[in-house]
């Protein structure tokens, strides 16, 4: 008996999900951050964020097709975290790292928060 593991599978599938997002194929939710709107797939958001997991497993909220985030969330920070969800790459510009970290805290993404903390401490 054998088993073949395609080691690139996870990243190849994630790249295709990001292609679906950029072509707005089967996206099923709009995230409103202040005045900016972001289309996404609920399943990808739930797989990455504790907050979205809680929202979309709540029978009263799982059918919503638009979610407004707290106005304290920075749209640029959210855009970077959303891009991370779909690419595994977190862009850390000096001017935005706090916005990114605060967005990750709000979205309950502890591993990203911890990594941002370590990055900030190491660059101090």
């Amino acid at each position: 008996d054998s088993c073949i593991q395609f080691t690139r599978h996870a990243s190849d599938v994630l790249l295709n999900l990001n292609r679906l997002r950029s072509r707005d194929i089967l996206t099923d939710v709009t995230i409103l951050v202040n005045r900016q709107q972001f289309r996404a797939h609920k399943t990808v958001l739930m797989a990455c964020s504790g907050l979205f997991y809680t929202i979309f497993t709540d029978s009263l909220k799982c059918n919503l097709n638009a979610i407004s985030l707290d106005p304290k969330v920075d749209p640029e920070g959210f855009a970077i975290v959303l891009e991370f969800m779909y690419t595994s790459r977190l862009t850390l510009k000096e001017s935005l790292i706090m916005a990114v970290m605060n967005t990750a805290i709000y979205l309950q993404m502890d591993h990203v928060v911890d990594t941002c903390h370590r990055f900030i401490k190491s660059s101090d």
Binding site: M85, D110, H111, T115, F119
Partner: peptide
């Protein structure tokens, strides 16, 4: 250097784990 920026490889867990059942 990947894509012109300094890329740091983080080997740890990236996102939460969804429980098998709630």
């Amino acid at each position: 250097y990947e894509g012109g920026v300094n890329t740091i490889k983080e080997m740890g867990r990236s996102v939460h784990e969804i429980p098998r059942q709630d």
